[in-house]
């Protein structure tokens, strides 16, 4: 059980560190799209945590950290729920 806690702490630390340290430069594809001039073709949509920020926390690193931890939970949670709820999961 302990190893799961260590692993979750590790994942959380990566998400939090990324929120404060990640580069704000455009990524490879965005960079190419800007350089060649087709970035304007992009149609952006918005969602609950657009650009990895919480709607109520504004555009801060803290806001990104919170949204990142939620994403970590969503990814793990999706598979965890599946592992517990499949029609052929054991009930005991």
């Amino acid at each position: 059980m302990k190893k799961y806690i260590y692993y979750f702490v590790l994942i959380a630390l990566i998400a939090i560190a990324a929120s404060y340290l990640a580069s704000a430069f455009p990524d490879g594809l965005e960079f190419v799209a800007e350089k060649l001039g087709f970035i304007s073709a992009a149609v952006e949509h918005s969602s609950v945590m657009t650009d990895y920020t919480m709607p109520m926390l504004g555009e801060t690193s803290f806001s990104t950290a919170v949204s990142g931890l939620i994403g970590v939970g969503l990814c793990f949670g999706a598979f965890w729920v599946i592992s517990r709820s499949l029609p052929f999961s054991s009930r005991n």
């Binding site: 990566i14 990324a18 340290l21 990524d27 990142g68 990814c75």
Partner: peptide, 8 residues
């Protein structure tokens, strides 16, 4: 997911 947030 966490590691993808880390833009270098």
């Amino acid at each position: 997911f966490a590691a993808q947030m880390f833009n270098f």
